[in-house]
Design a protein around this nucleic acid. Structure first.
Length: 884
RNA sequence: GGGCGAUUGGCUCAGUUGGUUAGAGCGCCACAUUCACAUUGUGGAGGUCAGAGGUUCGAAUCCUCUAUCGCCCACCA
């Protein structure tokens, strides 16, 4: 026995030690091993700016469990780690730190600024990696990738060029989501819609011919009226028929605009007349194209009004809104204002309200990419867990829109497009050169006057290549061949569109193979009130604090056990106590076993041991329970039911192994077979719990006699069946029931454990009595019985107290005063309940339809139950008579 | 406007393909402490499974509707 076995488990002392041990022994590193089956997960790369939150903790614990489990199962496992350069987010962070020096990125210039970002990354970019290590993440850190790595960037460029050459990338003027704060275009997915309480303004536009006559239009963004170039009504709308083709005077700017007719206009909404601002609304844009209207941009990139806004020029968009409304009001052109809830896009990085903005951007044509990705899921090549996300995925894919991939920021992969000034001078549409490397001269005119596109690519344009670009694609390295397609992707629902869907498209397009077979979507981590955990809400539980206070194993175990498949996770700090307590339980049970272990006795081969040794029922029972727990946990792990697996392991260890088994064997702990069995069960159990709680598993494992290698290198236990017969199982269950009943009697009669008691077990069937006899010592021990008598039929006497258990009476002499009246009441209540249950059951069995349609085994089961209940009833009646 | 999820003891949640006596953790009540563990043990109280209807021999579980809460998607100005 080792001296350092404290009474309480102290995770702080062990966790860092074992993590270091694993790293130093290269236990996380993976090599392509053609003889072995690969199992690979690519980490959802956290942002370099990231700080570990509970979502990461959940996400990475799941992956770590999968990796560790499969490693023990004999797979060649690889968990590929890395970080994402997170273009906008990182640029924002660095700009903020510049701001503290009173600088803007423009003050530094592009090159210097990017240098600063790299410096920042050097200093802080690996924070989250260190934090992941605290959790116990078994990533192959030697492979750590970054989406801005040179090799990775080659893949990004390659993909851009290939798609361009396939005409799947194009440049064009379209309405995109523009963030005035970040001053860049965003994709549709990056503009998160949120409901806002706003107003619907009714504006009166006078007719040119008769300024006393108006058409009233409704808008939620009155400032855009400065860019109106038409008013549209529905063709069928009788109210407006006479105005179609007429000219209106746009107030404030006095522009003449036409009334046009289009069936896109909803007659029911507001006045049925809509102002058309082709440069600031996607629908209006379509109308503008269709009706050849002018496109007047009234906004600057920063969200203030531009020169086209006349006297409002320079005002912020929301200030301009107020000013315009005031002005219209004073001119009598504001009919009314209604409260109106509307859904508005917000920048997913800075939460600023985005503007639909007409600008020149690069796009990916998505429909052709989506088709095979839809098929892959429909045909079951890729499966979502839980399955319902499949629908979400398919719905999005089937309605997919083109992807705006250019960003007007500096931090990111520069778009590999070059322009020839000479060619462009002749025709602005020409002179575009798309090339993996910077061309020396224009291939058309040989001019050397070239410049590169200023924009960078959407961060997700690099992330979508993650499952293969991390293996240095387009090079065909051995690892890529061996580990791709990867096995499973573990992520949160929020990024199905951003990332999962696009990875599937990219995998199929560039590798001609799916990127992963299974997608496990876990829930979102929320606080106890159901709110998303976020820094701004101040409701964050910091995983590192939990690790410091309760231990990483406790964090891992708790978060897994409360996360049922696909449901959101509601967390409060107290919930981590369960994990901590469990770790402590494992610790103390191990401590107990090792304290009592005689090392010479346990060096046996378990298979041989089973054959040669005649195990007693308790040892057979715990082995059988162990193996059925193993089977159950394994099944649950295989179908991604992590919480159920964790809970199976928990209740086996705590309630069966500790509460029953260890208590049962205490008197016989020196016996050889008990020594072997308790040791083997512990030893094997540690392997089962290791994927969930790797630190304590390793710590205890290393204390076991004979352990040398890490528990990570042990194999997952194999199943052993038929250790215990069903009659054995019934027997031990009977013993447990008797023990429980006697314990309960003691409480009811207020007989303390210290009091000696005598118990009679009265069984009518002699055979039952004989079967039970070997369990007598166990019953005596756990129920603290001094004298246990097993007899045949026996009627409880006046001075005795009895309870009915199945077909037996448990009889105990009365000690002290018993409240006969309350006992009688309880007894009568039991009889009542039982009688009504019997009635139900009799009715059920008497029902011909039941007998005919229910499966035979169910009918048999029910018959047995009914018989048991009848026996029980007789026993209760006997007791009732005794109490009277 | 569509889609999805949730509704089970005081709280937070499980509950396999429908099988009849619905589970856990926390909390609560009572008892226990030289004997692995008070981060413990033992016993107990506490639920007509949101409501209504239906299918079925049998429903927490399947179907329909309703209510409440939450999430996602969509170009209603």
């Amino acid at each position: 026995m080792t001296e350092e076995f404290s009474k309480q488990y102290n995770p702080k002392e062990t966790e860092d030690k074992w993590y270091k041990f694993w790293e130093e022994n290269n236990l996380f590193s993976a090599k392509a091993s053609p003889g072995k089956k690969p199992y690979c997960i690519v980490i959802p790369p956290p942002n370099v700016t990231g700080i570990l939150h509970m979502g990461h903790a959940l996400n990475n614990t799941i992956q770590d469990i999968l990796i560790r489990y499969h490693k023990m199962k004999g797979f060649q496992t690889l968990w590929m780690p890395g970080t994402d350069h997170a273009g906008i987010a990182t640029q924002n962070v660095v700009e903020k730190s510049l701001a503290k020096e009173g600088l803007k990125r423009q003050d530094l210039g592009r090159e210097k600024f990017i240098e600063r970002v790299w410096q920042w990354r050097q200093l802080y970019g690996s924070t989250i990696i260190h934090q992941l290590k605290k959790l116990g993440a078994s990533c192959d850190w030697n492979r750590l990738r970054f989406t801005m790595d040179q090799e990775y960037s080659i893949a990004v460029t390659e993909v851009f060029v290939r798609l361009y050459e396939k005409k799947l990338i194009y440049q064009g003027h379209y309405i995109i989501n523009w963030c005035p704060r970040c001053q860049t275009a965003l994709s549709d997915e990056e503009a998160a819609h949120a409901e806002l309480q706003g107003s619907l303004y009714y504006l009166k536009y006078p007719l040119k011919d008769n300024p006393q006559e108006f058409i009233t239009v409704a808008t939620t963004r009155p400032e855009t009226m400065l860019g109106d170039t038409a008013v549209a009504v529905n063709l069928k709308d009788k109210r407006y028929k006479k105005y179609v083709g007429k000219t209106l005077i746009l107030p404030l700017v006095n522009r003449q605009i036409k009334v046009i007719a289009d069936n896109m206009v909803d007659m029911q909404f507001a006045t049925g007349a809509v102002k058309v601002t082709p440069a600031h609304d996607p629908n209006d844009y379509k109308l503008g194209k269709k009706h050849k209207l002018d496109f007047i941009n009234v906004l600057r990139p920063d969200g203030s009004m531009n020169e086209s806004a006349g006297k409002f020029s320079g005002l912020d968009r929301f200030k301009a809104r107020e000013a315009i409304i005031e002005e219209l009001k004073s001119q009598g052109l504001l009919e009314k204002v209604e409260a109106h809830t509307l859904s508005v896009g917000h920048c997913y990085r800075c939460h600023t309200i985005v503007e639909p903005y007409l600008s020149k951007q690069w796009f990916v044509r998505m429909k052709p990419l989506a088709r095979p990705a839809i098929d892959a899921v429909k045909k079951g090549k890729i499966e979502f867990h839980p399955q319902r996300w499949e629908k979400v995925y398919l719905n999005w894919m089937e309605n997919i829109q083109d992807w705006c991939i250019s960003r007007q920021i500096w931090w990111g992969h520069r778009i590999p497009v070059y322009y020839c000034k000479n060619c462009q001078a002749k025709n602005p549409k020409l002179g575009i050169i798309v090339s993996k490397t910077r061309p020396q001269k224009c291939p058309k005119c040989s001019s050397v006057d070239l410049y590169q596109d200023e924009d960078v690519l959407d961060t997700w344009f690099s992330s979508w290549l993650w499952p293969f670009a991390t293996f240095y694609w387009p090079e065909a390295k051995e690892d890529l061949k061996y580990f791709y397609p990867t096995s499973v992707l573990v992520t949160a629902p929020e990024i199905i569109f951003f990332w999962v869907a696009r990875m599937i498209m990219a995998g199929l397009e560039f590798k001609k193979q799916i990127p992963f077979k299974d997608v496990y979507i876990h829930g979102t981590v929320r606080d106890i009130e159901g709110k998303k955990m976020s820094k701004s809400l101040g409701n964050v539980i910091d995983p590192l604090e939990i690790v410091a206070e309760y231990g990483a194993d406790a964090l891992r175990f708790s978060i897994i056990s409360i996360t049922s498949q696909g449901q959101d996770v509601f967390l409060s700090k107290e919930r981590f106590e369960q994990g901590r307590n469990f770790a402590n339980k494992i610790w103390n049970a191990s401590r107990f076993i090792l304290m009592n272990l005689k090392p010479e006795d346990i060096r046996v081969d378990l298979c041989v041991f089973f054959k040669n040794e005649k195990l007693d029922i308790v040892n057979r029972w715990i082995l059988s329970r162990f193996y059925s727990t193993l089977q159950k946990a394994e099944k649950e792990l295989e179908c991604f039911k992590f919480n159920e697996a964790a809970n199976s392991l928990y209740s086996f260890f705590w309630h069966e192994f500790c509460d029953w088994y260890l208590e049962l064997i205490k008197p016989q702990i020196d016996q050889r077979q008990t020594q072997v069995v308790m040791f083997k069960v512990l030893e094997k159990y540690l392997r089962l719990i290791a994927p969930f709680m790797p630190f304590i598993a390793e710590e205890v494992w290393q204390k076991l006699p004979g352990s040398k290698d890490s528990i990570m290198l042990q194999s997952w236990p194999h199943l052993q069946n038929e250790l215990i017969s069903s009659s054995d199982e019934g027997q031990i269950q009977m013993a447990f029931d008797i023990i429980n009943a006697v314990r309960n009697m003691r409480t009811e009669l207020e007989v303390p454990l210290s009091s000696r008691i005598e118990i009679k077990l009265a069984l009518p069937d002699k055979l039952d009595g004989e079967m039970l006899a070997p369990l007598g010592p166990y019953i005596k021990n756990l129920a603290k019985i001094d004298n246990l008598v097993i007899t045949g039929e026996y009627l409880p006497q006046k001075n005795e107290y009895a309870v009915a258990l199945k077909n037996m009476h448990i009889v105990m002499p009365l000690a002290g005063i018993v409240d006969v009246a309350s006992q009688l009441k309880k007894n009568l209540a039991k009889i009542d309940k039982l009688q009504s249950e019997i009635k139900t059951k009799e009715g059920m069995l008497a029902n011909e339809n039941f007998a005919r349609r229910a499966p035979k085994e169910i009918v048999e089961e029910e018959k047995t139950k009914l018989n048991d209940m009848r026996t029980q009833l007789v026993k209760l009646e006997v007791i009732k008579n005794g109490l009277r």
